[in-house]
Every structure is written in C-alpha cells, then in structure tokens.
Amino acid sequence: DLSALRVEEVQNVINAMQKILECPICLELIKEPVSTKCDHIFCKFCMLKLLNQKKGPSQCPLCKNDITKRSLQESTRFSQLVEELLKIICAFQLDTGLEYANSYNFAKKENNSPEHLKDEVSIIQSMGYRNRAKRLLQSEPENPSLQETSLSVQLSNLGTVRTLRTKQRIQPQRTSVYIELGSDSSEDTVNKATYCSVGDQELLQITPQGTRDEISLDSAKKAACEFSETDVTNTEHHQPSNNDLNTTEKRAAERHPEKYQGSSVSNLHVEPCGTNTHASSLQHENSSLLLTKDRMNVEKAEF
C-alpha cells in the first residue's frame, strides 16, 4: 500500500496539472479547448457565450486583445492532455480508494470495455495498479461463464418462442383441414349439385314461356288486323247491294208514291245487322237523297 506522504505528493502534482488545464472563465477543466490569436485557451462554450454578448469583436479576458469567431481554432494537443489527466485522476481514485477533492464528473469518461483496460497499462506502473489488474484478471474467467449461461438462457427462450410460433402455425392448418373434411358430406355435395341443376332447368323453362307469350301476342295482333281488313271488305261488298236497293226503291216510288213515303220513313230507323257505323252513315245519306228525289217527283206529278 501507498504511504500517506506519497499520496499527498501525487495529489499535489495532480492539482498543479489541473490548474494549468483549467479554463480562466469557468475555472474547470477545459472541455473542447479553443485557442485565440494571443495563444490563450478557453472552453469553446465559454468563448461563444462571451462573443454573443456583444456585437462585433470582444476582448480576451487575459490580455484584452480583440477576439472574433473566425480567429478561434481548435487545439487537439490540449484536448489530449486533458484526457490523460482524467485517466490519471481515475487511476488515483481506484488505487487509494479516496475521492479526489477537486474531482469532476468523471463517470462519463469511464469505460469498462476490454480495449480501455489494455490502455490503462500505459498509465502508471504502481503496486495498487498491479493489484487491481490481478483482481480484474481473476474476475475475467467468471465473466465468460456468466456470458455462457446468459447465452444458453437466451437460446432456450428463443427455442420456446420458436416452438410456440410453430404450434400457432400448425393449429390453424389443422382446424382448416378439419373444417374441410367435416363441413360438407358427400350427400350434401350431391344435393347441392341437384339443386343447381334444377335451378338451371327452371331458368331454361322460364325463358321459352316468355317467348311463347310474345308469339301469342303477335298472333293476336295479326288476327285483329285481319279482322279489321275483313270488316272493310264487308262494308265494300254491302255498298253495291245498297245501291241495288236504292234503284228498286226509286222504281217503286215512281209507281206508288204514297205507299213509299211511309216505308221510307220506317227504313230510316232500321239498321242492317253486321255493318259498322260507317255503313250506317252512308245509308242515312242515301235515304235522305231518296226522300228529296221522291218529293221532286211528287211535285212534278201535281203540276
């Protein structure tokens, strides 16, 4: 173990290094160091905050020279020094078990990766560091076993998940096959086929009936047209017969005018059967003409 005197000496050296690497504005270890034209180094955030307070150039807090945003430059070497100082402080805390008085939040800088452990060898070769390295080497064999167990647990979990997924996939297939086998029997399929065939026959029977009705309507229309044509021909046949009657009536009127007047009046009210309204109107006109002729003949006879 380190003596108290040596611990104090190391602590004083760390404090001196820390004062050199402090920012003059925030009085902390410089984060993202930036250098000016006057070779003074500050935190990048502190300098941008200072420049944004005034429009135009501002003055350096140490030498009062003008500073602009374009004049600022990043210093990589200074950032490396800060990183190495942080590593020294971490090693000091691990070796002594004491917390550094002016320690900052170094938890963000710590890294437990194997590459980081290899890099620590180049920091300080001390008894405390050696003991700590031995402890780490002793704890390393235990870690692979834990990793193997965790991997086995994960693989077993994956296997159970896969088996569950396969079961879920197989179950719908089985149910679907069961439904297909038990849903419709052979008799049901035959009945469905016969039902479809009967429906098709009914459709075939319905369509000819409609065509037959249309044919019957067409035949009825044709018969009505033929009947009207026969009526017209009958009226045409009746007209010459009426003319013959008129000639006979004229002759009778010349011989017996008194008797014919009474008979002509009675004939006005008689309509021949089986004739249309057109034929009756023609008869009325003929009878009126005959009456006028008879009157003329009677007057001539009187004179």
Results as ranks from 00 to 15, higher is better:
Asp1Tyr: 05
Leu2Ile: 05
Leu2Val: 15
Leu2Phe: 10
Ser3Pro: 15
Ala4Asp: 04
Ala4Val: 03
Arg6Gly: 09
Arg6His: 11
Val7Ile: 07
Val7Ala: 13
Val7Asp: 05
Glu8Lys: 09
Glu8Gln: 13
Glu9Gln: 09
Glu9Asp: 04
Glu9Lys: 13
Val10Ile: 13
Asn12Asp: 15
Val13Ala: 01
Val13Gly: 07
Val13Phe: 03
Ile14Val: 06
Ile14Thr: 13
Ile14Met: 01
Asn15Thr: 08
Asn15Ser: 08
Ala16Pro: 15
Ala16Ser: 09
Ala16Val: 01
Gln18Lys: 14
Gln18Pro: 13
Lys19Thr: 04
Lys19Gln: 05
Lys19Asn: 03
Ile20Val: 09
Ile20Thr: 09
Leu21Ser: 05
Leu21Val: 06
Glu22Gln: 05
Cys23Trp: 00
Pro24Ala: 00
Ile25Leu: 14
Cys26Ser: 15
Cys26Tyr: 15
Cys26Arg: 15
Glu28Val: 14
Leu29Met: 15
Leu29Ser: 10
Ile30Val: 06
Ile30Leu: 09
Lys31Thr: 12
Glu32Lys: 12
Glu32Ala: 10
Glu32Asp: 04
Glu32Gln: 07
Pro33Ala: 15
Ser35Pro: 06
Ser35Ala: 12
Thr36Ile: 08
Lys37Asn: 01
Cys38Tyr: 15
Cys38Gly: 12
Asp39Ala: 09
Asp39His: 01
His40Leu: 10
His40Tyr: 12
Ile41Arg: 09
Cys43Ser: 14
Cys43Tyr: 15
Lys44Thr: 07
Phe45Leu: 06
Cys46Trp: 15
Cys46Phe: 15
Cys46Tyr: 14
Met47Lys: 10
Leu48Val: 09
Leu48Arg: 11
Lys49Gln: 04
Lys49Asn: 02
Leu50His: 10
Leu51Ile: 08
Leu51His: 13
Leu51Arg: 04
Asn52Lys: 08
Asn52Ile: 12
Lys54Met: 12
Gly56Glu: 12
Gly56Arg: 10
Ser58Leu: 10
Ser58Pro: 15
Ser58Ala: 02
Gln59Glu: 00
Cys60Arg: 15
Cys60Trp: 14
Cys60Gly: 15
Pro61Thr: 03
Pro61Ala: 08
Leu62Val: 13
Leu62Ile: 06
Cys63Ser: 14
Cys63Arg: 15
Cys63Gly: 14
Cys63Tyr: 15
Asn65Ile: 07
Ile67Lys: 11
Ile67Leu: 09
Ile67Arg: 08
Ile67Thr: 13
Lys69Asn: 06
Lys69Ile: 00
Lys69Thr: 03
Arg70Thr: 03
Ser71Cys: 12
Ser71Gly: 12
Leu72Arg: 12
Leu72Pro: 10
Gln73His: 13
Glu74Val: 01
Ser75Asn: 10
Ser75Arg: 13
Thr76Arg: 08
Thr76Met: 10
Arg77Ser: 14
Arg77Lys: 13
Ser79Arg: 09
Leu81Val: 13
Leu81Phe: 05
Val82Ile: 04
Val82Asp: 01
Glu84Ala: 05
Glu84Gln: 06
Leu85Ile: 10
Leu85Arg: 12
Leu86Trp: 02
Lys87Arg: 07
Lys87Ile: 00
Ile88Phe: 13
Ile88Leu: 14
Ile88Met: 04
Ile88Val: 12
Ile89Ser: 12
Ile89Met: 14
Ile89Thr: 02
Ile89Phe: 10
Cys90Trp: 05
Cys90Phe: 08
Cys90Ser: 07
Cys90Gly: 04
Ala91Thr: 09
Ala91Asp: 05
Phe92Cys: 15
Phe92Ser: 14
Gln93Arg: 13
Gln93Pro: 12
Leu94Phe: 08
Leu94Ile: 08
Asp95Tyr: 15
Asp95Asn: 15
Thr96Ala: 02
Gly97Cys: 09
Gly97Ser: 12
Leu98Met: 08
Glu99Lys: 10
Glu99Gln: 06
Glu99Asp: 10
Ala101Thr: 02
Ser103Ile: 05
Ser103Asn: 06
Tyr104His: 12
Asn105Ser: 12
Phe106Ile: 08
Phe106Leu: 10
Phe106Cys: 02
Ala107Val: 11
Ala107Ser: 01
Lys108Asn: 12
Lys109Glu: 06
Glu110Lys: 00
Asn112Ser: 15
Ser113Tyr: 05
Ser113Cys: 14
Ser113Phe: 07
Pro114Ser: 03
His116Asn: 00
Leu117Pro: 04
Lys118Ile: 13
Asp119Glu: 11
Asp119Tyr: 13
Asp119Asn: 06
Glu120Gly: 14
Val121Ile: 04
Ser122Tyr: 07
Ile123Leu: 12
Ile124Thr: 06
Ile124Val: 12
Gln125Leu: 11
Gln125Pro: 15
Gln125His: 10
Gln125Arg: 05
Ser126Asn: 07
Ser126Cys: 08
Ser126Ile: 12
Met127Leu: 05
Gly128Cys: 13
Tyr129Phe: 04
Arg130Lys: 04
Arg132Cys: 01
Lys134Asn: 10
Lys134Glu: 14
Leu136Ile: 08
Leu136Val: 11
Leu137Ile: 04
Gln138Arg: 04
Gln138Leu: 04
Gln138Lys: 10
Ser139Arg: 11
Ser139Thr: 09
Ser139Gly: 06
Glu140Asp: 11
Pro141His: 05
Glu142Ala: 07
Glu142Gly: 06
Asn143His: 02
Asn143Ile: 12
Asn143Asp: 10
Pro144Arg: 07
Ser145Phe: 02
Leu146Val: 14
Leu146Phe: 01
Gln147Arg: 08
Gln147Glu: 12
Thr149Asn: 07
Leu151Phe: 04
Leu151Arg: 12
Ser152Cys: 08
Val153Phe: 03
Val153Asp: 12
Val153Gly: 14
Gln154Lys: 01
Gln154His: 12
Leu155Phe: 05
Leu155Val: 04
Leu155Arg: 01
Ser156Tyr: 06
Leu158Phe: 01
Leu158Ile: 07
Leu158Arg: 04
Gly159Val: 14
Thr160Ala: 03
Thr160Asn: 14
Val161Gly: 15
Thr163Pro: 15
Leu164Arg: 11
Arg165Lys: 09
Arg165Met: 08
Thr166Lys: 14
Arg169Trp: 02
Ile170Lys: 09
Pro172Leu: 04
Pro172Ser: 00
Gln173Lys: 04
Arg174Met: 00
Val177Phe: 15
Val177Ile: 00
Tyr178His: 13
Gly182Glu: 10
Gly182Arg: 11
Ser183Phe: 02
Asp184Asn: 09
Ser185Phe: 07
Glu187Val: 15
Glu187Gly: 02
Asp188His: 02
Asp188Tyr: 02
Thr189Ser: 01
Asn191Asp: 01
Lys192Thr: 15
Ala193Val: 00
Cys196Ser: 05
Cys196Tyr: 00
Ser197Ile: 01
Val198Met: 08
Gly199Glu: 09
Asp200Gly: 04
Asp200Tyr: 03
Asp200Asn: 12
Asp200Glu: 02
Gln201Lys: 05
Glu202Ala: 11
Glu202Asp: 10
Leu203Phe: 03
Leu204Ile: 14
Ile206Asn: 07
Pro208Ser: 14
Pro208Leu: 00
Gln209His: 14
Gln209Leu: 00
Arg212Gly: 01
Arg212Ser: 02
Asp213His: 12
Ser216Arg: 04
Ser216Asn: 10
Leu217Ser: 13
Asp218Asn: 11
Ser219Phe: 00
Ser219Ala: 08
Ala220Pro: 14
Ala220Ser: 00
Lys221Thr: 09
Lys221Gln: 01
Ala223Thr: 08
Cys225Tyr: 01
Glu226Val: 01
Ser228Thr: 15
Ser228Tyr: 02
Ser228Phe: 00
Glu229Asp: 02
Glu229Val: 00
Thr230Lys: 11
Thr230Met: 07
Asp231Glu: 03
Asp231His: 05
Asp231Asn: 08
Val232Glu: 06
Val232Ala: 15
Val232Leu: 02
Asn234Tyr: 00
Asn234Lys: 09
Thr235Asn: 01
His237Tyr: 08
Pro240Leu: 05
Ser241Asn: 00
Ser241Ile: 02
Ser241Cys: 08
Asp244Asn: 03
Asp244Tyr: 00
Leu245Met: 13
Leu245Phe: 03
Leu245Trp: 00
Asn246Ser: 13
Asn246Lys: 12
Asn246Ile: 05
Thr247Asn: 02
Thr248Ser: 12
Glu249Gln: 06
Glu249Asp: 07
Lys250Thr: 01
Ala253Val: 11
Ala253Thr: 10
Ala253Asp: 08
Ala253Ser: 01
Glu254Asp: 03
Glu254Val: 00
Glu254Ala: 02
Arg255Trp: 01
Arg255Met: 09
His256Leu: 03
Pro257Leu: 10
Pro257Thr: 06
Pro257Ser: 03
Glu258Lys: 04
Glu258Asp: 11
Glu258Gln: 10
Lys259Glu: 11
Lys259Asn: 03
Tyr260Asn: 07
Gln261His: 03
Gln261Arg: 07
Gly262Cys: 00
Gly262Ala: 10
Ser264Phe: 01
Ser264Tyr: 03
Val265Asp: 15
Val265Phe: 03
Val265Ile: 09
Ser266Pro: 05
Asn267Asp: 10
Asn267Tyr: 00
Leu268Met: 14
Val270Ala: 01
Val270Leu: 00
Glu271Asp: 03
Glu271Ala: 14
Glu271Lys: 05
Glu271Gly: 10
Pro272Gln: 03
Pro272Thr: 02
Gly274Cys: 04
Thr277Ser: 14
Thr277Ala: 04
His278Gln: 03
Ala279Asp: 15
Ala279Ser: 12
Ser280Arg: 02
Leu282Phe: 00
Asn286Lys: 11
Ser287Asn: 06
Ser288Gly: 12
Ser288Asn: 06
Leu291Pro: 13
Leu291Phe: 00
Thr292Asn: 02
Thr292Ile: 02
Asp294Glu: 15
Asp294Gly: 13
Asp294Val: 13
Arg295Ile: 03
Met296Leu: 13
Val298Ala: 13
Glu299Gly: 11
Lys300Thr: 02
Ala301Thr: 08
Ala301Pro: 14
Glu302Asp: 06
Glu302Val: 07
